[in-house]
Amino acid sequence: MLGKLGKTDRILLFLALGTLIFSELMWFQGEREGALFVGLWVPSILGFAIFLKLLKSDK
């Protein structure tokens, strides 16, 4: 599955996964408000990745 993804797609996917893990670590350490804030970055990163993919497919 990862073979079909480009370099930029992989980077953004791993950034989203890393952000999700970091948010969960913050949550379980008791920093709940910070964890919610960081957790909201995940859909933004994935949305940006989809946007870049759409731009690339137009060409």
Rank of each mutant, 00 (worst) to 15 (best):
L20T: 04
M1I: 07
L52P: 04
E24Y: 03
G34H: 10
D58L: 10
G34A: 14
L40P: 02
L55G: 03
M1Y: 08
D58A: 10
S57P: 01
L15E: 05
L5K: 07
F48K: 01
L13N: 13
L15S: 10
I11Y: 09
M26G: 00
F22V: 01
G6T: 03
L20K: 05
I45Y: 08
Q29L: 14
D58Q: 08
I45K: 07
G6K: 03
A49C: 07
K7N: 14
R10G: 11
M26H: 00
L40T: 13
G6V: 03
S23K: 02
S23Q: 01
W27A: 11
L12P: 05
I45T: 06
L54I: 07
Q29Y: 11
F37N: 09
A16F: 03
L52H: 02
L15F: 07
G18I: 02
G6S: 11
T19G: 05
I50T: 05
I50Y: 13
L13A: 15
M26V: 00
G34R: 12
L40F: 14
I11S: 05
G3E: 11
W41N: 12
L54N: 08
T19M: 08
A35D: 06
G39C: 05
L13Y: 14
L5M: 13
S44E: 04
F14R: 11
L54P: 01
P43D: 09
I45N: 06
A16G: 04
R10Y: 11
A16S: 10
L2D: 14
E33G: 04
K59L: 03
I11C: 06
F37L: 15
L40Y: 11
L54Q: 08
R32H: 13
I21L: 13
E31G: 00
V38M: 14
G30S: 06
G3W: 07
P43S: 07
S44M: 11
K7D: 13
L52V: 02
G47A: 15
W41R: 00
G34L: 13
F37T: 14
K56P: 01
G34I: 07
A16N: 04
V38Y: 14
S44W: 09
G18N: 05
W27R: 11
F28T: 00
E33I: 15
A35Y: 08
G3S: 10
E31A: 13
F51V: 06
K7P: 14
G47Y: 08
A49F: 05
M26A: 08
K59I: 03
L15A: 10
E31D: 12
L15C: 11
I11F: 14
F37W: 15
R32Y: 12
I50L: 15
F22A: 15
L52S: 01
G39S: 11
A49T: 04
L13I: 15
W27N: 05
L40H: 08
T19N: 09
E33R: 14
G6Q: 02
K4H: 13
I11D: 08
G39E: 09
L15G: 01
